[in-house]
Simulated assay, not measured.
Amino acid sequence: MTIDIIGAGIGGLTTAIALQQKGIRTRIFEQAENIKPVGAGIILANNAMQVYEKLGLRKIIEDNGNYIASMNITKADLNPISKVDLSFFEKKHKVKNIAIHRGALQQILINELKFNEIHLNHRLKKVESNDHGYSLTFENRKQIQSSILIGADGLKSVVRQGLFPETIIRNAKQVCWRGVTDFKLPGAYKNELNEAWGKRDRFGFVQIAKDKVYWYALKSFKTGKNEFSAHNIENYFDKYSSVIKSIISSTQKEHIHTAEISDLKPTSFWYKEKVCLIGDAAHAMTPNMGQGACQAIEDAYILSECLSKYEVHQAFATFQKLRLPKAHQVVKASWMLGKIAHLSNPILIGIRNQLMRMTPSSFNRKQSEQIFQIPHL
């Protein structure tokens, strides 16, 4: 059995590795002409690291990333509002939370693929079902016949648009900038993820390697992302902490990635016949909980377990039953958190911050536990 995967992102590569370890061969088709490091970091939360522990990749990921002990929400001046201590989950699940350069993680995953093919410069143009499975037409004019297909091709998935057209992409009316910079963080911040909330905007930063910081910033807009330019980003966050302003000024502006934030309105079906969606293609979420890639990594592991135990249709049905409720819970919570974080009324901001300070740590722990728990077949 050979399974075709559209997309060589974190979800697609992890799926190929998990299937490889089950003795299932895959072919991966990726639109990029070459796989090169993207200027962004990624936080591999406890649930993602549990998967990589099962796949034998925990140690190499830890060696190439930075350990994160807590996740903090702060005011713009970095005075704390809320803190989630991750040590409880480290002890319970025997893995740490790791921040790592996305390019470094991608290279680790590629190196782990032994026998599976990665076909670059294969941007999917059209997918059609036929008597033998699926006909894949690529923009390079190549055509491939596929018997089993996994769509790991992101928010604007061609697989989903071709075979699951009844889906809706929602624009959050927020622009996001991401950057990686050489920067020596003050010692207090080296093993923390900090996200500072202002008025209709916020700024997060985390160390991903020695003296290397990944940061992201979001701001609400009214007319379109062209309202804001990366070249003016220092002005947008001039009321923030001096640490944050220094991180921004140390970053080369031409290396800052700018994008509008969108998600996929939760849908009831991720599969039909012998095609299945995973990751952002199935449940794209806003980045407000740092779970986008983590949920795709969970998909990869659970789907490989299902495909190793059941025939294809039952495997896809079981996968959807196990993963859909949790993924959609995270999609909804992330969308709501994005709205709460971008309040503009000073009175509402004050009430929000006070409520967050008063929230018991046991409640935060319970919420995190629901996200970090991996289901068993």
Score class of each variant (00 low, 15 high):
Met71Ala: 15
Tyr67Asp: 15
Thr258Ile: 06
Ile108Tyr: 09
Glu254Cys: 05
Ile110Asp: 11
Ser241Asn: 15
Lys173Ser: 15
Ile278Arg: 06
Phe29Cys: 11
Met356Glu: 09
Ile256Cys: 05
Phe115Cys: 11
Val312Asn: 12
Ile98Arg: 03
Asp85Phe: 08
Asn226Asp: 09
Met358Lys: 10
Gly12Ala: 11
Asp131Pro: 01
Lys59Met: 05
Ala172Val: 04
Met285Phe: 01
Ile148Phe: 07
Ala32Gly: 06
Phe115Thr: 12
Gln295Glu: 10
Lys199Asn: 11
Lys173Asn: 15
Ala300Lys: 04
Leu193Tyr: 01
Leu324Gly: 03
Ala300Ile: 00
Leu13His: 13
Ser334Ile: 03
Pro360Tyr: 04
Ser250Asp: 07
His101Phe: 06
Phe363Pro: 00
Leu163Gly: 09
Lys253His: 04
Ile302Asn: 07
Ala282Phe: 05
Asp211Arg: 08
Leu163Arg: 09
Asp211Glu: 14
Lys210Arg: 14
Ala8Glu: 01
Tyr310Glu: 12
Ser135Gln: 12
Pro186Asn: 06
Gly41Ser: 11
Ile371Trp: 01
Ala45Met: 02
Val158Leu: 05
Ile73Lys: 13
Lys59Thr: 11
Asp238Met: 05
Trp197Tyr: 10
Ala296Leu: 06
Ala188Asp: 08
Leu193Glu: 04
Ala300Gly: 06
Asn116Asp: 15
Asp85Ile: 07
Leu13Met: 11
Gln354Cys: 08
Ser157Gln: 07
Tyr301Thr: 06
Ile28Arg: 13
Leu193Asp: 01
Met49Ala: 14
Thr359Ala: 07
Gln106Ser: 15
Gln106Cys: 14
Tyr240His: 05
Arg160Asp: 05
Ser344Phe: 14
Ser268Asn: 12
Ala152Phe: 01
Ala69Glu: 11
Phe89Cys: 07
Arg352Ala: 15
Thr74Lys: 03
Ser220Cys: 08
Asn111Gln: 15
His328Cys: 08
Ile148Asp: 03
Lys54Pro: 10
Ile100Val: 14
Glu90Tyr: 15
Leu377Ala: 14
Ile347Gly: 08
Ala282Ser: 14
Asn226His: 06
Gly187Lys: 09
Ile81Gly: 10
Gln373Ser: 15
Ile278Val: 14
Phe89Ala: 15
Tyr189Asn: 06
Ser362Glu: 06
Lys222Trp: 00
His342Asn: 12
His328Ser: 09
Val180His: 03
Met285Asp: 03
Ile6Gln: 08
Glu254Trp: 01
Arg365Ile: 02
Lys366Met: 04
Arg365Ser: 10
Glu234Leu: 11
Leu337Ala: 09
Ser246Tyr: 00
Gly39Asn: 14
Ala217Gly: 07
Glu166His: 10
Phe221Gly: 07
Gly179Ile: 03
Asn46Phe: 01
Lys173Pro: 06
Glu112Pro: 04
His257Gly: 04
Ser344Gln: 15
Ser220Leu: 07
Asp211His: 10
Gln252Trp: 00
Ile98Cys: 10
Leu113Val: 14
Ala281Met: 08
Ser361Ile: 00
Asn116Ala: 13
Val84Tyr: 01
Lys91His: 12
Ile6Trp: 03
Glu311Pro: 12
Leu120Asn: 13
His132Gln: 11
Lys83His: 13
His132Asp: 06
Arg178Glu: 02
Gly56Ile: 01
Glu128Tyr: 02
Thr258His: 02
Thr74Pro: 04
Gln354Ile: 08
Ile168Leu: 09
Thr74Cys: 10
Lys253Asp: 03
Asn116His: 14
Gln31Asp: 03
Val175Phe: 02
Gln50His: 05
Ile168Thr: 10
Phe205Met: 07
Glu33Met: 05
Lys210Leu: 12
Lys219Thr: 06
His93Trp: 09
